[in-house]
């Protein structure tokens, strides 16, 4: 994007002083201190002390979310008051795009970790390739993915007899989450989730078209459907976690398979919730306040970019976590 020339110059809106940054900081830091203390109570605590950690967390979080609400409301109001130049809007767009890029990198780490443990660590632990001598430590471990038996399980005597002191206890699952065969395909939740999420990408696009054609009904309807599909996805995901924990014995502690499975799908699910929440807000703005015009609807656009991003991540997940 080249710099604009003189004739198109509009004054760039630099806001007055603002309390929002300070409040957001106070809220966020309080929440995280509360959360850290809560985790510490759980893992290191004596059980007798009452540190009010969850209370601190909740108060901080509420304050933080409240601040964000005011913050976004302010920017929306400024925009509707016509204070934002085209250039400022472009700054917002750049900001959102790079924010999404940072999220891509965040997911990349977890995919990278999955790749590394599946393709390198597993075989090494089983004494293949560069890990030739590891058979001395894990003599009975043989590797396959999904890892149903952890190296610890393979040691006779389990956790007590393992060659490394002080680990936790990692017991492999009874069943894995991958493709259960054609006959059970109807019960295979990830497939339905894929269908749901992919179609939601289309519905949000249709809503966007509606907005651009100034067809408000179309916008409201299809955006609403998108939000609904998001909720459906999250519900199925919760169902799947329930199944995994209760029926499959697949837990966070089920060794690296459970670890990567829950961390990848979990972070994705969290991002779906965020994206869905963003879309919900846009839907409320569109339906109740009549926001957005055919050529000025950055809030909607940013949320839909985010939604597409979440969708792409799911495709990666479906491939690498469930199918391959």
């Amino acid at each position: 994007m080249a710099a604009q020339d003189d004739s198109t110059y509009e004054a760039y809106y630099v806001p007055e002083q603002s309390k929002m940054a300070l409040c957001a900081t106070i809220g966020l830091v309080t929440a995280l201190i509360g959360l850290a203390t809560a985790f510490n109570d759980m893992t290191f605590g004596e059980g007798t002390e009452n540190t009010h950690s969850w209370l601190i967390f909740n108060l901080g979080l509420a304050f933080f979310v409240g601040t964000l609400f005011v913050w976004f409301r302010t920017t929306i109001r400024e925009n509707r008051a016509g204070m934002n130049s085209a250039q400022l809007k472009h700054s917002y767009a750049i900001g959102m795009q790079w924010f999404i890029f940072s999220e891509v990198m965040f997911f990349a780490v977890f995919f990278g970790a999955l790749f590394y443990v599946r393709n390198l660590v597993g075989p090494w632990l089983a004494g293949e390739g560069a890990g030739e001598m590891n058979y001395l430590l894990w003599p009975d471990f043989s590797y396959s993915w999904p890892m149903m038996e952890t190296p610890q399980d393979s040691v006779v005597g389990g956790a007590a007899a393992q060659p490394i002191a002080n680990n936790g206890v990692y017991t492999g699952p009874e069943r894995d989450m991958s493709f259960p065969g054609w006959s059970n395909i109807a019960h295979w939740l990830p497939l339905w989730n894929t269908v749901i999420l992919l179609s939601s990408s289309f519905t949000v696009h249709i809503a966007h078209l509606g907005l651009k054609q100034n067809n408000r009904a179309k916008l409201n309807l299809w955006l609403g459907i998108t939000v609904f599909l998001g909720i459906l996805f999250v519900s199925l995901q919760i169902l799947e976690y329930y199944e995994a924990y209760v029926e499959y014995g697949l837990k966070l502690t089920s060794g690296i398979y459970g670890t990567t499975f829950f961390m990848l799908t979990g972070f994705h699910g969290f991002h779906v919730c965020l994206g869905m929440f963003m879309l919900l807000i846009q839907w409320l703005r569109a339906t109740t306040a009549g926001h957005f015009t055919a050529d000025d609807h950055f809030g909607f656009e940013a949320s839909s970019w985010y939604w597409h991003f979440v969708d792409v991540v799911w495709v990666g997940l479906f491939l690498f976590v469930y199918i391959l």
Binding site: W124, L125, G131, E132, M133, N134, L136, L137, W138, P151, P163, I164
Partner: peptide, 9 residues
């Protein structure tokens, strides 16, 4: 390096 759980040569 001595890595717990792995044997280096």
């Amino acid at each position: 390096d001595a890595i717990p759980g792995f044997i280096n040569e």
